[in-house]
Simulated assay, not measured.
Amino acid sequence: MTVHFAAARSATHSPLARAFARRAIARAANDNGNPDADGRNEALLQASLRHFAKHGLAAAAEARTRAEEAFFAGDRESYDWWLGICRTLDRRMAEEISRRKQG
Rank of each mutant, 00 (worst) to 15 (best):
N30I: 01
A19R: 13
A21D: 14
P35L: 04
I85W: 01
A29D: 11
I97Q: 03
D75M: 07
P35I: 08
G74C: 05
E62S: 09
A8F: 13
T88W: 08
K101P: 03
V3N: 07
F52M: 13
I25H: 08
S78G: 02
T12G: 04
T88L: 07
N32T: 12
T65G: 06
T65P: 01
M1R: 13
W81V: 01
E95P: 02
E62R: 14
A19D: 09
T65N: 13
R23V: 14
T88P: 00
A94L: 05
R91K: 04
A63S: 14
D38H: 01
R18Q: 15
R40G: 14
L57V: 05
A6F: 12
E95D: 14
A73L: 10
A43R: 15
R64Y: 05
R92Y: 00
M1P: 09
E42P: 00
M1A: 14
R64S: 05
G39L: 10
L44V: 12
S10P: 05
G74P: 10
R87D: 10
H51P: 00
Y79M: 15
A59C: 03
A60I: 02
R76A: 13
A67G: 04
E96W: 02
A37D: 12
R50V: 06
F72P: 01
R23H: 12
R99C: 00
A17F: 13
L83T: 04
W81C: 02
D90M: 09
S14D: 15
K54Y: 12
K54R: 14
S10M: 05
R76G: 07
R27T: 15
T12N: 09
R92A: 08
A61E: 14
R22W: 07
R27Y: 07
A94F: 08
R66S: 09
A73T: 08
T65D: 08
C86N: 06
R64L: 07
D75T: 04
A29T: 11
D38L: 08
A17I: 09
A60M: 06
E96C: 07
F5W: 10
A53L: 09
E95Q: 12
A8V: 11
E42H: 04
F52V: 01
D75C: 05
A63V: 09
S98R: 11
H4D: 11
T65R: 15
T65H: 14
T88V: 06
A60K: 03
V3H: 10
R23P: 06
R92M: 09
R66Y: 05
F71P: 00
G84D: 02
F20A: 06
R92F: 01
M1S: 15
W81T: 10
N41K: 05
N30R: 04
R18C: 02
D90N: 15
G74Q: 08
A94E: 03
A28L: 12
R18V: 07
R18T: 06
E62K: 13
R18S: 09
A73I: 04
E62F: 02
S48M: 03
A63F: 06
R27D: 09
N30T: 11
E77N: 07
R91V: 06
R87L: 04
S10V: 02
V3S: 12
R40D: 10
Q46Y: 03
F72H: 15
A63W: 01
V3I: 13
P15K: 12
A47K: 10
